[in-house]
């Protein structure tokens, strides 16, 4: 009952979050050490600033990418799919009912017709 730290048996192996965290920490430690071995002085001074080619830096509020623009390309690529989806989601309550009845009718057909035919 109280063997809290046993791994979870899945079909093809096991999953133990504790082991995973230990492994993650070890990897993190190694990376940190490697990072610590590097050049400390890099990045200061004039080189560290962004190159702005003379124009003034716009306000931070203006460059914040709004939600509507994220994944614009994705939705644009799947244009046809999203068009069909928009057509389905009408927002009319009658259509919602139609979908339910349609699925119920489909279940009837799938459940009953094989026996009637076969």
């Amino acid at each position: 009952m109280w063997n809290l730290f046993d791994p979870l048996e899945t079909t093809g192996g096991f999953w133990s979050p504790i082991l995973w965290i230990i492994a993650f920490l070890v990897a993190f430690l190694i990376a940190y050490i490697i990072w610590g071995l590097g050049e400390r002085k890099h990045g200061g001074g004039e080189q560290g600033k962004p190159f702005l080619s003379g124009t003034r830096e716009p306000a931070k509020e203006a460059v914040h990418v709004r939600a509507g623009n994220i994944y614009w390309g994705f939705t644009e690529t799947l244009h046809g799919y999203y068009g069909a989806m928009k057509k389905i989601h009408t927002g009319i309550v009658n259509d919602y009912v139609l979908w339910i009845l349609g699925m119920a009718a489909l279940f009837f057909v799938v459940l009953i017709l094989p026996e009637v035919i076969g």
Partner: peptide, 10 residues
């Protein structure tokens, strides 16, 4: 009219 009551859709 249910066709006009659809502020929530998609």
């Amino acid at each position: 009219d249910s066709r006009n009551i659809r502020r929530l859709k998609e």
